[in-house]
Every structure is written in C-alpha cells, then in structure tokens.
Design a protein around this nucleic acid. Sequence first.
RNA 1: GGGCGGAUAGCUCAAUUGGGAGAGCGCAGCCCUUACAAGGCUGAGGUCACAGGUUCGAUCCCUGUUCCGCCUACCA
Length: 874
Amino acid sequence: MRELVKTYNPKEVEEKWYKFWEEQGYFRADNRENRPVFSIVIPPPNITGSLHMGHALNTTIQDIIVRWKRMSGYNTLWLPGTDHAGIATQNVVERHIAAEGSSRREYGRKGFIEKVWEWRGHYGRTIIYQLKRLGASCDWSRERFTMDEGMSRAVREVFVRLYEEGLIYRGSYIINWCPRCMTALSDLEVEHENIRGKLYHVRYTLTDGSGALTVATTRPETILGDTAVAVNPDDARYRDFIGKRVFLPIVGRELPVIADDVVDMEFGTGALKITPAHDPHDFEVGNRHGLQKLKVMADDGVMNDEAGPYKGMERFQCRKTILKDLSDRGDLIKEEDYLHAVGHCYRCKTIIEPNISRQWFVSMKPLAEPAIKAVEDGSVPFIPEGWKNTYFEWMYNIKEWCISRQIWWGHRIPAWYCGSCEGVTVSRTDPSSCRHCGSLAISQDEDVLDTWFSSALWPFSTLGWPEKSEDLKRFYPTSVLVTGFDILFFWVARMLMMGLKFMGDVPFREVYIHPLIRDADGQKMSKSKGNVIDPLIMMDKHGTDALRFTLAAMSSPGRDIRLSEERIEGYRNFANKIWNAARFIFMNLEEESAILDPAALTLPDRWILSRLNRTVADVTKMLGEYRFDLAAGAVYRFFWHEFCDWYVEFAKLQITEGGKKKDNTVAVLIRTMDTALRLLHPFMPFITEEIWQQLHKSSIMTAPYPSMEESFIDDTVESRMDSIMDIVKSVRSVRSELDVPPTKAVDVHMKINSDALRELIEGHLVYLKRLTSAENIVTGTNISRPALSAILIFSGGEMYLPLAGIIDIEKERWLLEKRLKKVSEEINRIENKLSNRAFIDKAPEEVVLKERDKYKELTEQKERVEANLSWLNG
RNA sequence: GGGCGGAUAGCUCAAUUGGGAGAGCGCAGCCCUUACAAGGCUGAGGUCACAGGUUCGAUCCCUGUUCCGCCUACCA
C-alpha cells in the first residue's frame, strides 16, 4: 500500500476529480428513470458577476443537499444557469466600449446587442467556471441562460397571456426614474437611505394680497412644477385660504389652494405644495382634483423648457440656485435640519427621481392571492419559518410592478404600435401588420422587460415550458429553493406567483433561506469597504473543502455569518486531520483486506461503532432539517474528538498485538473511516473522493449515503468506555497539575468500590497503562494508600500515584482543597433543593431521584476528600 | 412610523419541547509519544444585557427597559 504524503494538498486533487466526475456523467439527471426525484434550480448568478462569498455559501448549501440526496438514491437534478441581468450587464458593456472610445449610440441598438452577446461569450461564463471550482455538482448538460431561445419564448408566452387577461397594461403613472441609467425602476430596485437633508419653508403669497401661506419641502426645485397648494379641510388655520389662489414664487404662476385630507396638519407648516408630475403622493392629489401634471425635468435630470429661467440646469444645481433666489426675495422663511429616507438606484446609487412616465405594469394583486394562500396553508414551508411574516407583509401590501426598462439589453416588449390607428398589437410571434386596422405601419416598443420578469419563470422555463417536456413532467415542482432573504421579494415571491399562475402548482415544495455573509465585524462585505474575503483566494490558500465546511458549519439559522479567515484555517486543519487519519490507516493495511468479525470486537471497537452510528443518525437528521451547522459540528466532533483522539489511540495498541486482533482492528478502522467519508462527502467532496478512490478504486459519489445500523448502538458499551476515559483523563489531569511529565513513568494504585468497575478496569489495563503513561497499575477493593502519594477521587473509587521525591505536599493539599470546595458547593445547592418541600412534591420523580443520587455520590466523595486531607495534615 | 432578529467565556457562536451552560479560535503550562506541530495532553474564564412576573425551579416562557443589526414605509 503506497504511503500518502504528510500534508493534504488540495490543489492537486480538486481539478482532477471534478473533471473525472463530469466525464463520468455523475451530475446528470435522467428524465426517464422512475426512482424518486429530487430537483433544485440554481438561483442564476448574473453574467457580470464574479464569485463572491454569497455565491459560495448558496452553492455550497445546494451542493451539500444535492450530493446527499444523490447518494441517498434519488434521481437528482440540479439545474444550473445564468441571468442576463439587464441594467448591470448593459452598464458593464457600455463601460467596456467607452474604454475603446466608442459608445452605445455609436453602435446602434443591433450592433450593441451583438456586442453584449460577444462580451458574454468572453467574460459571461467565468462565474460558471468558478462554481465548478467550488465543486458544484450541477447537471451542466441542462445549463440555461435567461436570454436563450427557449426562455425568451417562455417570457413572451407569459407576457401575452397576462396582457390578454388584462393583468399587464400600459399607462402613465409616477415611477422611479434613474437619471443616470435613464430607465424606469421597480419599487424594489430603489434603495432607501437615510440622509441628513433640509426642510425648506417657502412663502407663497395670496393673489388677493390678503396674506401668505408657507409650505415645507425637501425638493425646492420641484416648485417649478407646482400646480396647487393643499391644506387639510379640518385645519382651522387655513380654512379661509381654501378656494383662493397663490402666486408661485419666482415664476409668478397662479395656483389654487385646495383642500385634501391627506395633508398632515402636524407636519411642517400644514400646507403642502402639489407637484403631480414629480411626486407619487401629489400625483394622487392631482388626479383627485383634476390638476395639470407639469413636468419640469428631462429624463437626464436636467431642467426642461417648463423650468423657465432654470432650463438646462442640472437638478441639484437648480435646487441651489432656486434656494438662493428665494432667499434673495425673502421667500425662504427658514431651513430646518431634516433626516429623511432618499431613494437611490440599486445599480448605480444615483438619487432616484420620481417621474411621471408611460410604462408597462403588472397588476399584482390577483397574482399574489394564490401565492399568499400557498404559504398560509403550508403548501410551501419557509425555513426558518420566521421569514413567512416578512413575505406576508410584502404580499398583503403588494403594489403594481413596473416592468418596462428603457435599456437595450433584455427581452424586448412584444408590443407593436400602429402608426395609423394608434392600436396596440401584443403577440407571441412578431406581427407584420396592425391587428386592429391591418396597417403595415407598425413599430415595436423600444423597451425591454425587467430582468426579474424572466427570473420569475426560472423554475419552469428552464425545464422546457411552454412545451410539455419530459423534464417538466419529471422535475416540476422542484423540491426546494435555496436562497438568501435579500431576494425574497425580487425573486422568491414572484416565482411563487408565476408558478401558480402558469403551472397551476407551486414552483418548489420548500424554501430554505440561508444567512447573509458579513465580515468579522458584522459589516456587509463590499469592494468599496475593502473588507471582502474572496472565496477564490480562500480556495487557493486553504482548499475548497475547508471553505465549504466553514460555510456549512457557520450557517446557523436566523443569524448572519461573520466570516473570518481564521475559521477557514481551522477547518483546513480538519481536512488535514482527516488526511492523516487516512494515512495512519493506509500504513496498517495489508494486501488482503480484513473482514470485520462482529464476535471479536473489543470494547473500544464496539464503542466507536456505536458512536459512529449515532453520528450517522444525527447528521442525517440535521441535514433533513437544514441544520448544516449542527450536521457539520456532529461529524467534526465525532471524527476528531472521538475517532482520532480516542479510538485511533486504542487501535494502535490493538494493532501491536498482531494476528486476529490486528485484522479486526484494521477492519473497524476502515469501516469507520469509510462511513465517515461518506458522511462527510457532501461537505468536503474532494478530500473524501481522493481517499475513497485509494481505498476502493471507485467513486464515493456513487456510494450510498450511510444509514444508521441499530445493532451497533450500545448504551452499556458507551458508558463503560466513558468510565475508562474518565480514569485516563483524571490521571492525566493530576499529572499535569503536579507537573509530572508523561515521560516520567509512575505507578497507579486503584481502590475500586464495585466489582463491576474493577472487572472493567482490570480487563483494560493495557490501554490504561499506555494512555496514562503508567509503569504499573495495581487494583483491588482493599488497596491502601502508599506513602507520599497523590490522591485522586473519582466516582467509583480512589486512585493513588506514589510520587516519592516528586510530590509536593502543598500542591497536593491545594488540589484537594480545590476539589473539596467544588464538591461542597455542589452539595449545598442540592441540599437546598432537596430540603424544599415544594420541590419534592411538585418536581417529576425522576428529577428528584437524580438529585438524590447525585447527593449521595457527592457526600461520599466529600468524606473521602476530607479523610485524605486530614491524612495529609496529620 | 410599522415589522423581524440579536445581546451567553477575551473573540465568533451552540445548547433537541424549563431541572445550574458547551465548541472553535485565542490565552497559559507541559510535550517533536513512529497518522498529524495545520499536532497531542492539561488548565484558567461566564450574576447567560437590565428590571419585574409565572413556576418547586428560568439562559430558556410572559411583560417592560436599554443597546445593536436588518427589512419595510409616498409626513411633504
């Protein structure tokens, strides 16, 4: 058997095995098989993206689930793909060609889109290679892209059907406008940020000269678009103003003073300027009162013709100038500091301008209803459950969805406008004439759809819809959706709505929402803050398995992950531990593999097999509950602190005995390692494959996931091993406290109270000697204390370590006193409890019994400690 | 403004339905014991944020307070 190198080298093995898995077709799902199905679709990363920790976590969790299910015998599909990310991609490619000294306009629409496709061909697939580096076992033969032909057809089908049902419509409303991206955005694409701004009080004088009103505004530049001033009808201060007119400052236009109860009397001055074309609130007021909607700003954020003297001024420059002019005229009454939320473009962080504009919308309420119900009635559980509330809150108050974007890269809106009759033709296939009048003078809408419109169809469009494909029949609904809560509304909610609408069934049976990753200080990772931990660099430095295990171990529900490189190093060490345990086993392997003889198992053998099978049960249970943290913790503890720390040490002794004992020990080592590797494989696919291949000459991916073997679970064995281990730990502890190094051999005299315990100890003296570095061990029920010896009181008896010439009486006394204090405190506590009548009466019997047992045991120990102390003093 | 989550060892986090709290990292001491120094052994450390309440008993359940996050919202 060839010896392994001393430290595990991830780089060598990762690429090799990933290639092997792909070549063998292990990732591929079969749509003709009749095994139970498990399917997931990946949250498609943007083609502009580079792998960050969020992807790494999301991918790792899905891969853990998928590899586990695959090994458990499911016909498993993990369908991968990418998202065309309209605005983001267009921005990136525009920057790209700007660097070449060109521009989007120069290319023209057709040329630019060709350029984007070209760009995607070159750079848009890096994220896919990075997912592969993570070990993602996706079925790459089914990879999809939101702009590919099939998905585009699905988008069109959905658009047309919703339009025909009246759920998609076109109209002029206030939308969020990004003057930099020059496009409309949905409400979700606006990030609100608290900004320390000012509330400006501006005076509007009445045309009849009878006085003035003061309004408060945060955006003085919109004064130019005012078409009324509103007050609350119940406001006694302004009752006489209603129906009068005021002069718009600077401009001099006359505005009516109207009454509307949306005006909050408490806020500001109680008088509200109304700008229906530039404020959603005012838009409504304008509609109610039939006010003119006066646009004073162009789409690029520059004031237009209607702005009079301010025409051509950038919006914030205009604000400054207007403030100065108002102030010069004495119409600026005061400025108040004011903290308020200001919307920013989620792509470019530019301040959003609410703007009246003609756009396409989806009517959400009818779509939301069934999606709410599906979550309410438990058809789609959320894990953790708490996210349901967040989901409901958004869904109950859902708003219309603005889906048109004034960009080029994306699914073009399938609507054609007629130059002759003004009719709109919405069609699955490109029409050549107007549906209404037959005119050939039609032209397609210039806009494209919100990227999330196509993502919403992902779980069924990727499977071939609107065709009734085999994949769709077999794999829809998917088994679970794994995602972060940051796209709960953007994506999860919309998929639910669309899935129910077009498939008549939920798109996924469960939603697992994983935490978000932050840095060690709890800050969001961002390039501008410079606090990103790059998963690619981490994989290079510490190995993919270490990174994956870290992410799994740290994803506790309901809490963000504060990632630090030290944690990754810690689990890199774990990988190395696994590697070295394997090395140890390989060093002891014979040509012929040993068969495990259940009749010849020693106590440690039976113990490790019992612990192993409990771990199998724990890990499987935790995986089923999406507790990757607990699953990872359980297998980590077992492997390191039970298998390596204890069993391997016992095994060394059993191996030196040779013969049958050795063979059986090696068999147990292999059995344990073998099972542990399979348990670990979903977490650490590469190292487990590398070791497994050397052990079995086959792939661990096709090995069955372990299931608990009840017959190996043995409480008695475990408690007997606990006794042995306790004794070892006690002796080690005393040696350490008294500064007796392991190199110094000592004798151990053991006075044991019960026959059973004595038998147990005597049966395992070899182990005890070795693990405590004892020269001789003397046991008996009537052992007396040797002179100059250290004393050790344990639950079944006492131990003496003769330490002539070494023992330090003071230190010994200190140890005993420390023990006495601890025991006495514990006794006091229990005494208090047991002397409480109410406790005896009301507490469950088993709890009372437990306390009584503990009391008895402790009082005995206390007596013995005291006896030894007085012996020491005497 | 509304909603959700968190506060436990120096740091990051656990604790299966209430019966005196664990791990990793860090720290200290001793060890190169032939799988592993990316290691082994041992140890120190916590009024479980604060104040009440329910209970025989509360880190856990209830109420309130303080301090942090996050989501959401058209008070201009």
